[in-house]
């Protein structure tokens, strides 16, 4: 089995703060590793070590078999990084930003321009190509940032919370990009605070908290640990709430809850439960104003893995 990147026992301390307390991460070539964790978990620190921007205090990391400390220069030739905070130059236009990166990657001027044009088209930035990046919207900036990390056609791509703060449509665009990259043969490390995102994109997920990996596995195995999905129903007619609850109970075999007025929810395990619920609601003529199937939130994941909520220090 060949790993595109692997890290073992990474430790990083900032004064008294231990950002990483022994983290192992690895991804096989051509796969997506999702690194899931709340704010302050150590995601960015781990990415920066793998991107040669930071030296670990202990442990080691390698990209393409090359140590990130000893062979930093070679590693930089293999990777593309889209940091958590925008790393485009605000005063430069979209084209100028990408051409600069191309020139720094030793492309000839004509090739750098052609590559910039390709990427601007791919990321729907052709019209904005000649404007300074400071006039871009948040979503456009994010896309330019992504494009900038792909100029050199890297083998390994790090995306640090690429969708945080984006609306669902723009988030879908980024998801599409990640899938395309993998189809092109790249290996992706994606950090996120959303289980849904990790579930949608990652082949394997490492959950980290307080600088430690607290769970690792495929999305399916992780979801089975944390209790799968939840169905939520909000009947249009308030009086049909108990009928709806009966449907949920019958399909799931669990006792539904009513977390807020006019709503019933129930955890489900299989993939067919949702369509079954829809059918039965239809048969009974219960019209609904809200009907959804969602994954547990990060907070719920943490609660089931650690017995405490995100942001709280000690076990509950």
């Amino acid at each position: 089995m060949s790993y595109a990147f692997e890290a073992e026992g990474l430790v990083k301390r900032y004064g008294k703060t231990t950002a990483l307390a022994g983290v192992d991460l690895a991804a096989r070539t051509g796969t997506v590793l999702g690194v899931l964790g709340p704010n302050g978990a150590g995601k960015t620190t781990a990415v920066r070590i793998l991107a040669t921007l930071l030296r670990p205090d202990e442990g080691r990391a390698a990209v393409g078999g090359l140590d990130v400390v000893k062979h930093a220069a070679e590693v930089r030739g293999l990777i593309g990084l889209t940091g958590q905070y925008a790393s485009v130059d605000e005063d430069l236009t979209g084209t100028q930003n990408l051409v600069l990166i191309g020139r720094l990657l030793n492309l000839r001027t004509a090739d750098a321009k052609a590559r910039a044009a390709e990427l601007l088209a791919d990321f729907d930035l052709v019209e904005a190509a000649g404007r300074p990046a400071k006039t871009y919207s948040g979503g456009m900036r994010r896309r330019l940032d992504l494009a900038a990390s792909l100029v050199g056609r890297p083998d390994v791509i790090y995306l640090d919370e690429p969708t945080t703060g984006l609306d669902p449509a723009k988030r879908d665009d980024i998801w599409h990009v990640v899938r395309t990259l993998v189809a092109d043969g790249a290996t992706v490390l994606l950090t996120t605070q959303y289980l849904e995102e990790a579930d949608a994109l990652a082949d394997e997920i490492s959950v980290i908290d307080h600088g430690r990996v607290i769970a690792h596995g495929t999305p399916a195995s992780l979801k089975s640990v944390v209790g799968g999905q939840t169905i939520l129903v909000r009947p249009a007619d308030h009086d049909r709430l108990s009928d709806a609850a009966a449907v949920l109970a019958a399909v799931s075999g669990h006792q539904p809850e009513s977390p807020s007025r006019g709503v019933v929810t129930v955890p489900v395990d299989g993939d067919t439960a949702f369509t079954e619920v829809v059918k039965r609601l239809d048969v009974l003529g219960i019209s609904v104003t809200e009907l959804s199937l969602r994954l547990p939130s990060l907070d719920e994941v943490f609660f089931s893995l650690t017995g405490r909520h995100t942001g709280t220090e000690e076990a509950a």
């Binding site: 990657l105 050199g152 890297p154 990259l181």
Partner: peptide, 26 residues
Amino acid sequence: MTLIAERTVPARAGHRPFGLARHSLA
């Protein structure tokens, strides 16, 4: 769509001389 697979532009430029000077000028 393809993003990093090779199309018209060479995949990577590889090594070219005077790197520091060219990069500094860019």
